[in-house]
Design a protein around this nucleic acid. Structure first.
Lengths: 216, 216
DNA sequence: ATCTAATAACTGACTGGTCAGTAATATTTT
DNA sequence: AAAATATTACTGACCAGTCAGTTATTAGAT
């Protein structure tokens, strides 16, 4: 029981700081429980406010969730797009950078739980699925497609089926994120993301290499 | 309004047929809604019985779900294991058969919704996750690892990191299953599973080929 | 064959608990 | 004092699981 100073106010008005704190708490709780099973009371408790306060800043649960996605995922996408725009060197190195970025910035952070969450709730909350598809998936796929096309145009990659290959690139990363949220506790050891990433990059190098030999 | 024959009974005793019908209905509704969001009233309606009847045959929602997994997934795993046990020819052909089997028997059937379901609910229903991990995932991974080791032993595959490679093999298949349940409605065209499978097999052929040239 | 218990299968209203969202009220700040 | 910010208590909808009662079926008696 920390507070007993009768002069200390029971709470303070902190209009500026609340939204960030609430979104941060929501990321934690949504990540642990999923969208439907998350209680707004728990989010409020995690943020150190009451449930009513949530409704001063966000009109409902769904909009709160969208705010979480905007804060946790979109900045990383922005960064990735800037990387592509400024790329000079070989395309495979760019691909490597992007996947490593994903493995470190998303997988290891609390944001890694968001893909699972979306997949889990897409059927029951189609608006959420639409939002994520438009704001994240479409952009991420376009980004990777652009990298592949750049590599093909520069003769670094053989001419693959771009759409399928994008999915092949994404799948192991996505699967790692899902695994973390679902089965990590059940397997003895933690999943060796570094080994998986290395194997994946190795496989991609072989898959994308032009027929005549290894890429320059 | 079908029934008006006053002589027709309102219901019949059909002790033998009920469990199968209930499990079948449950697969449909769980697949559409997930575990937590499924109402047993809806399962009952779909099966043409009342909710009380469900509890005559299954002690609770969780056991009903396990019955669904046993009926929809395990027979396919049995078949896959028999395929490996009786394999004579090249290991890559076996791998190809297994993946094609998965794409047709699981992805295209209603059972394709189960992986999503498990991933979605694993965090909130650890018993379910444990059950699925032990009965399905462990076995499937062991199966694929055995195929890889067979290929390596026979000199058909180069010596890869088996654990990571199993995950690389599974990931695109799993992702297809998840996509179907989550985003198929949002994309214009249906996902081209055949193209993805072809690209995946092509990539695997290149990834697994021994250094000296293509496998025999 | 027909009637008559006895039993097994099934129904559906009810309970207890949960939780998103709202209304009424309180405290802090200006 | 008034406005802004926050809390607390409440409402209404939802649903897994239960159980007292109902209906179909079977077996035994006539």
């Amino acid at each position: 029981m920390p507070e007993d100073d009768p002069a200390a106010p029971r709470w303070r008005r902190r209009k500026e700081a609340r939204p960030r704190e609430i979104v941060d708490a929501a990321l934690t709780v949504f990540g642990e429980r999923g969208f439907a099973a998350t209680r707004l009371d728990d989010v409020a408790a995690q943020a150190g406010v009451s449930k009513g306060t949530l409704y001063l800043y966000f009109p409902n649960k769904e909009e709160l969730f969208k705010a979480v996605v905007r804060e946790a995922i979109l900045p990383n996408l922005d960064m990735a797009e800037r990387l592509l725009a400024g790329a000079q060197g070989p395309s495979f190195a760019l691909l490597e950078t992007l996947l490593t970025l994903f493995a470190t910035r998303i997988l290891k952070s609390r944001a890694g739980s968001i893909p699972k969450l979306i997949i889990a709730e897409a059927g029951n909350f189609p608006d959420l699925a639409r939002f994520y598809y438009d704001e994240v998936i479409r952009r991420a796929f376009a980004l990777l497609a652009a990298v592949l096309e750049r590599g093909i145009a520069r003769g670094e990659f053989r001419p693959v089926d771009v759409d399928s290959t994008v999915r092949l690139i994404v799948a192991p990363m996505l699967m790692s994120a899902l695994w973390r949220s679902s089965f990590e506790a059940l397997e003895g050891r933690p999943p060796d993301v570094a080994a998986l990433l290395a194997a994946h990059l190795d496989a991609l190098r072989r898959t994308l290499a032009p027929e005549g030999g290894p890429s320059p």
